[in-house]
Nucleic acid binder design. Structure first.
Lengths: 207, 207
DNA sequence: TACGGGCAATCGAACGCTGGTTCGGTGGGA
DNA sequence: TCCCACCGAACCAGCGTTCGATTGCCCGTA
């Protein structure tokens, strides 16, 4: 119990300081101080800085995936699944802004083989998104197109979730509805009549 | 001429190394080596690491803004302006992936007052996006809503531009059409009948 | 119950290294 | 002669990491 409390405090401190300072500017000394431990005391619990980053990322991604799966289990239509993804992501971005920041910015800095492990976990999340869009897609799109659409969606979500834009959970909830609707319309319409896009945006090639 | 050549080489080297390693892991020694200069020689041209990052960011943002303004000047309808933004951004992301990475990830690490100056320049870019969406908006939306829609759009663009997804300029060009259409439909439809979003996504609150 | 050995938790202090930065030069063109 | 571009070498601070202790609690044994 006590040691798990310590462990949790360490991970929490590391997450915050990684998020605020960035991985390389964050110092182990500062993390130890924030976790109420001496420098050497911290090393009793974790093997090093790289492992610390891994632990933070691993737990953060597990939490995100768990939240998504829970929300997905309650959603019965493809549309509701999309909304569940959007809501979960935005809610997570509000509740755990620091974790999301580390997930999106610092995961690249891990050393192998830990890096691959985290990349795989991120891939799992992406795959959830692709599956939702595939279900939703009125005209069967290619895997490549579904992938890029998913990346678009996640880019949108990270864009707002990263900024200090979500002032309350209610904010996140309403915004999720708007984001979901915007993407949904674009995705469905674009699919239903792809040439219409070219029509509106006709004079593409400069005169 | 010779000194400007040196200066350009330094900025180019710094940009690449910042992009690949991240600001804090990039060493001045490595940048000097890449620019064919000794460590002390580099300091003859720039005042320090922070200033180097500032110079890279400042030039990269100037280039991006200039490219956008040029494309905007050729676009006559609001729809074409949107497409111009999308195309410019994606094209820039392909041509200057390193610069875009630094812009999106490392600008926060600048010290004041340089940070504020770069933030202002980024704000200028954002403002261009807001202006385009306002022109495009069939029903007048609030400033807040236009801002968040713009952030959504830019998030999408950075999402794809950051990944190794753009394999050629043609790729970027076609993808721009699809992204533009997707966003445009979502934005217009969502605006035209906002309650329809709630209709499709009706059973939001868990049963 | 008293004792003692061992182990987990924790620490102060140091080590080696790398980073950004500075200093005192040197050579060559005007 | 002077100045500008440029360099080698050093300085110092901060980093991640390790080492050798010290403490206090648990547990088997007498």
């Amino acid at each position: 119990m006590a040691i798990e409390h310590r462990y949790g405090a360490i991970l929490e401190a590391a997450q915050d300081i990684f998020a605020h300072r960035g991985f390389h500017q964050a110092s182990i000394r500062e993390i130890a101080r924030a976790a109420d431990l001496s420098l050497a005391g911290l090393y009793h619990y974790v093997g090093g800085k790289d492992e610390l980053l891994f632990l933070v990322l691993d737990q953060a991604l597990d939490d995100l995936l768990a939240a998504l799966d829970e929300a997905l289990a309650r959603a019965r239509t493809p549309e509701l699944k999309l909304l569940a993804l959007v809501q979960t992501h935005l809610d997570y971005g509000f509740r755990r802004a620091a974790a999301l920041k580390v997930i999106n910015r610092d995961y690249e800095l891990l050393q192998e083989p830990r890096r691959s492990e985290i990349v795989a976990k991120r891939g799992e999340y992406l795959r959830r998104g692709i599956a939702i869009l595939r279900e939703l897609d009125p005209h069967a799109r290619s895997a490549d197109e579904l992938l890029s659409a998913t990346i678009l969606l996640l880019g949108m979500l990270n864009g707002i979730a990263t900024r200090p834009f979500l002032r309350s959970r209610e904010d996140a909830h309403t915004l999720a509805g708007e984001v979901g609707a915007l993407f949904l319309y674009g995705f469905l319409e674009h699919s239903a009549d792809r040439s219409a896009g070219a029509a509106i945006l006709g004079g593409t090639h400069d005169a």
